[in-house]
Design a protein around this nucleic acid. Structure first.
Lengths: 190, 190
DNA sequence: ACCTGAACACCGTTCAAGT
DNA sequence: ACCTGAACACCGTTCAAGT
């Protein structure tokens, strides 16, 4: 129905299309949410989407970015809670979009846009974890500790672990991050 | 060229088709390896594949199973090496088929065959890890330790971590598994 | 600048027909 | 029992044409 005269400014319309895509990506998954379905949900023709987005992967990147920004913003308000609680909260937030998490990994090889966003994502998250580490740890061990924590959480999200095991996992990841000094030192020196 | 008379017994032909599929899955990835390409590579028509396999996902499951069996068999010969070495070896073996690992996760929601194989896979792997744990650990903590180890390795495979970080990660996972008693006890009791 | 209808080359899967 | 040619309903993407 929205003819040509663009009753709506460009950026806002882009956001509307993106919202429709994000919604469908989450509830149906990337593959099932075809471009034509997304377009229909947004009230436009299929190829209109290609005016606002280069391809379907750019739509996925944009959706992932929106979720990530929202997550980080809300997480900032919880910075003074115990680390284990923060982690459990993160897992809980990511669980409903595990479809997206897993699809991003699957498409790294197929789309450079996805690949780039994904490495940016890991930089962000690991930096966040490294901030929790005590100061005097060698750089390589820091990277390993942050990676291990990230993988543990990603695993908990992807495999949807039951709640009690998730809590235990988060507690032990948190403990590990905050006490990494001795263990890391031991691992490196022997 | 292989007409009708079936010069080849059923099970063997199935294996040949599977081999062609597995090869293409690994080198091109699941999506890029279309059913028609697989068929051509195996020297048959597209729909012949559907005589031997229910659908493309069953092909993926069969390929994954072949890789897993081979991996476990070869791993059995390394049972007396240090655990950290075993883990690093596992990661190294899985790295070339990370495409498959990630695709299996992505397709859990789309195929019950994949979903079932995947949970069997985790049972196998986690059982393998639980055997490394000292005896007197509560069941729930055992599950969490095994899951954490699995996720760490899966993460290392999927994100292809650089070799030195991988080694460090494997060492600390191994250490963690073998010393889990105190930590698990502490995590549970506080 | 924005949007469309129609087409393109593919995809996984099925079916009726052959031997 | 095994295999095929031809079709089906889709897919993501593009393009010439409209305003």
């Amino acid at each position: 129905m929205p003819q040509n005269r663009r009753p709506v400014p460009k950026e806002q319309k882009r956001k509307e299309l993106l919202a429709a895509a994000a919604e469908l990506f989450v509830v149906e998954g990337y593959d099932a949410a075809s471009v034509s379905r997304i377009a229909r949900a947004a009230g436009v023709t299929t190829n209109t989407l290609y005016w606002y987005f280069r391809d379907k992967d750019e739509l996925l990147v944009a959706a992932a970015e929106v979720f990530l920004r929202a997550l980080l913003t809300e997480h900032a308000t919880k910075a003074d809670e115990p680390l284990a609680e923060q982690l459990a909260w993160l897992v809980e937030q990511l669980r409903p979009i595990r479809h997206l998490v897993v699809t991003v990994h699957a498409r790294i090889a197929l789309s450079t846009a996805i690949a780039e966003w994904h490495s940016g994502f890991h930089e962000t998250v690991e930096e966040l974890f490294e901030r929790q580490l005590p100061g005097e740890i060698p750089a390589s061990a820091r990277a390993q500790e942050a990676a291990a924590a990230t993988f543990a959480l990603e695993g908990a999200v992807i495999h949807d672990l039951d709640p009690t095991t998730t809590r235990q996992l988060c507690r032990s990841v948190a403990e590990r991050l905050q006490q990494a000094t001795q263990v890391a030192g031991r691992s490196v020196s022997d």
